Structure formats: structure tokens, C-alpha cells
Computed example of a mutant assay.
Amino acid sequence: MVPEVVPDTEVLVSFRGVQKSYDGESLIVKHLDLDIRKGEFLTLLGPSGSGKTTCLMMLAGFETPTHGEIRLNGALLNHVPPHKRNIGMVFQNYALFPHMTVGENLAYPLKIRNFSKSDIDAKVMHALSMVKLEKLAHRYPAQLSGGQQQRVALARALVFNPQLVLMDEPLGALDKQLREHMQMEIKHIHDSLGVTVVYVTHDQGEALTMSDRVAVFKDGIIQQIDSAYNLYEAPVNSFVASFIGENNTLEGEVQSLQDGLCQVKLGDGIGLTAKAVCADRAGARTTMSIRPERVRLNGASEQCANRFQGKLQEFIYFGDHVRLRMDVAGNPSFIVKVPVSELDGSWSVGDSISLGWNPEDIRALDPLNP
């Protein structure tokens, strides 16, 4: 992936040619070139073992790059110890001192930075007010709920006004409802303070909800770094298309290319037209990607350039919509999303239903199984 060019005045953190190996042989991070902009909320997203947490740990100072440079505001960080980097850190397990009160936990990073007592008291109360815990300053961590402990950990990371805050799966231990509430709370705090946040998660919904940009990792390499909208609507390869959101795939062979579109023959001989993204030559194998909500059914499909018959296999109810699992062009797990208000009550499992989509809605990408 070619790194984008960002003006130096906008860059807070830069990775250049960064690699990381723990055994001297296999690379966990293979070659990272990345600029993190001042004030942005950047999420590192990927499956376990993809290298995202290792990148965060190198930025925090808990790991050292095997090769390459990491700079903060232009200053080389590679061998600067963690406590001298002016970086706040929030962990999944909170990492609060159990023998200290909430107020003492927040005061600790200020004391080691030699703030005066009056400044410490003012900054602690201000940080607690940001997370709405002013009344709990004298409690101990064990007397708090998981959500309250995570708020304390967030306040402690912000209390000394760091230029950068790193968050490593900070909401992973919370239940779904609380996690979603904390996502919005963290995003609102970020918006109000303007601090730069680098956030690590394997939860794609969390990444899409909170981030200005998302870097999608696989096997130690960033596959795509972009806005949530572009990652979902314009994935650059099959991994990103499959990892971000729900996705239907169809396998085929490129027959011809013209004006940014390609003609593709599926395994059963049926042809369709797709947007040529990775497909660059006739005869190449391609995996095509189409989102479930882009598929049109029955009468709505009549004006679509690509039309098929699908066999209805299953109804999956999701409250505001129903997902229809269908057998389409050799894919027995093809999903179509239908709002409940548009569901045809006459449909039954086993029915043959007309469906279709437009060429710009299906992307011809690299083969998932080359």
C-alpha cells in the first residue's frame, strides 16, 4: 500500500519502514508507513495476530521496533522510555491501583510529573467531571462497577493533558449496552478536547462508529486506511470487503474490461457486469463483493443490469429488518436485507425469487481463494 502524503504540520506521529519480530525470523509487523494526524481518532482494526496491538505497544514504548523509525512531533521515539513520551494509555483491564482511591489514581500521573497540589486537585476534579464521576473520588476501584472503572481509567489517561492517548481494546470487558454507551462517551470527549486518539479493536462496529479513519490490518500489513464510509462502500480488496460489514461474494473469471467495468463469467456460465477494482486482465480469477442492502428483489430488480433467480433458504429476523438467506449463482449463503415493512408475506422457504443489482454496486476484487 502506498502511504498518503500528509503535510508535516498536520502529522503528530509517523511510522517509517517499521518492522517488528520477536524471534528474529517471522515479522509480526512487516513494513509500516503511517502518518497519524493531529486531533484525529484513528482506529487500528484487524483480527487477532494481525499486528495492530504490536503497533500500539511500539508507540507506547512497551516494545521496540526491530527496524524503522517512530516519531512524535518530529522527535525520534524508538528508545524513549514510556513515562517520558507524554502519552496517555487506557487498557482493557483498567490497570487501576487497587490500594488507591479514584482521586489518588488520577493524581498519581500528576505527582510523578511534579505538579503542585493545587494544580493536582483542580485537574483531578476536572477530569472526573468529564466522565461524570465527581462524587466517587473517595471510593476504591473495587467499589466501582466495570463501567465506572473504565471511566476512571479514561480520566487518568487524560488528566495530564497528553498530546496523544492510546486505547487498547478498552471496552472489551463491558456488556453490549454499556460498551455502546461508552463508545459514544469516548467519541464525545475526543471531540470536545481535540486530543489525538489511537484506538485498537477487533470489533468492526466499534471502529466504524467512533473513528475519523480506520487502518485495517492483516498479517502485519495495513490493507487499507480510510474513512468508515469508504472502507464499507469502496473496499480495495477481498479481505477488507469481507472483514468490514456483511458481504456477499461470487466467484468468476474476467472475460473483458472496458470503461472501468468488467464482464465476468460465473462458475455456472452466467455472466454479469461489475466494477473493475482489482480485476485488470481477461482470464483472471476474481471474487466479487456486494453488500446485502444493495440487492433488489422482484419488481425492484427489473431495471437492474445484473438479474438472477435465487432460491429462498431461510428467514432471519432482526427486529427492524429481516435477512433472507438465499442460494444465488452458486452461493448458498447469499444474504439480502429487507426492511420489515417491505417483507412480502407470501414468501416461503423454497420459493424462487427474482433479484438483481447494478454494476456499480458489485466490485470485482482479488480472488479470496487464488
Rank of each mutant, 00 (worst) to 15 (best):
P370L: 08
P47L: 14
C278I: 12
D23L: 01
K111W: 08
T196W: 15
I270T: 11
L154I: 13
S242N: 15
H190V: 10
S256V: 03
L178W: 15
V2F: 05
L261R: 12
L154E: 05
A122Y: 02
M326P: 00
Y229L: 12
N247A: 11
Q150R: 09
V200G: 09
S301A: 12
E169N: 10
V11T: 13
P7V: 10
S118K: 14
S192V: 09
Q223W: 00
T286A: 11
M125A: 04
G350Y: 04
V198Q: 08
L297M: 03
G299C: 08
S289K: 04
L174V: 04
H138S: 08
R139N: 04
G39S: 09
F41Q: 09
E246M: 14
G220T: 01
N161G: 08
E10V: 12
Y108W: 09
H31C: 04
G205W: 12
D327V: 00
V349L: 04
V322E: 00
L42A: 12
R296F: 00
F97N: 07
F97M: 04
D121R: 15
L27H: 07
L110N: 03
W347M: 03
Q255W: 00
E314G: 00
A241E: 02
D344L: 08
Q148C: 09
R363S: 13
V2N: 15
L59C: 09
M89A: 08
F239L: 05
Q150Y: 11
I316Q: 14
R281A: 15
A60S: 13
L250M: 05
L27V: 00
E25P: 02
S341P: 01
F217Y: 02
V277H: 10
M125N: 07
L257W: 15
L231I: 13
K132L: 01
E104A: 05
G24Q: 09
E293V: 06
Q204R: 12
D226N: 05
E206P: 11
G260W: 12
V102Y: 10
T9W: 14
V195A: 08
L250D: 07
